[in-house]
Amino acid sequence: MSSNHMNLKLKIWRQKNIAAPGGLVDIDAPGISPDMSFLEMLDTVNERLQEKGEEPIAFDHDCREGICGMCSLVIDGRPHGKEDRTTTCQLHMRKYADGDTITIEPWRASAFPVIRDLVVDRGAFDRIMASGGFVSVRTGGAPDANAVPISKHEADASMDAAQCIGCGACVAACKNASAMLFVGAKVSQYAHLPQGQPERNKRALAMVAQMDKEGFGACTNLQECEAACPKGISVRVIAEMNRDFLRASLLGAE
């Protein structure tokens, strides 16, 4: 083992299933290379656990390149860990020092129940999307893509919002477990495009109603979500959604 390897102490949330109580468990993580990603560190820990006859720690992950939004983890009190604009899978262990203690917890929100260990159910996000996060166009019959010019500025604003990976870090970071940044990002993406206009009122009303129904908290504009967002989605999307929602509400729109 080369000399720059680190020995870490982990405090990890372990929970057998959705109904069982959970708790923080101390686990040693020796021989961690600074070149490992955070999840590779957990892989290494899992291999050791299994050798000792203990079940591996369950955590969500898939692409491991910061785009699928499946990985999560609140690391030392911060969603996706200490590096700005970086998902857990892209966080590398060189950010830590030998002897560090790292606390790892799941996303905390009543709308995101813990399924096991660090894995939570984010189905609420899908239900919000199904309530209005789309343009009602069926396959076929779309006009030529260049038929409606869209200013670069608006297209860029739309893309800024569309970058959301749906990981839920905004909810995890918010003291109220509010989903406003996630929902705002989708509302804003379409609000900046001509294709989004016909259903603009309806979309804002429906998605906010579903968001509330799922039990997410309210936004108190602390902007922790923006700071925790691995894609740097701006809270301007929240202001835009508020505007759309209030206008549509006052209009009595259907």
Partner: peptide, 22 residues
């Protein structure tokens, strides 16, 4: 060619030039 039309209609924010075209 239909794919691009379809995706634009769905609100996929493809990169655009200053004139507003793709």
């Amino acid at each position: 060619v239909n794919i691009i039309d379809q995706c634009v209609a769905q609100g996929v924010p493809f990169a655009r030039e200053y004139g507003g075209h793709l």
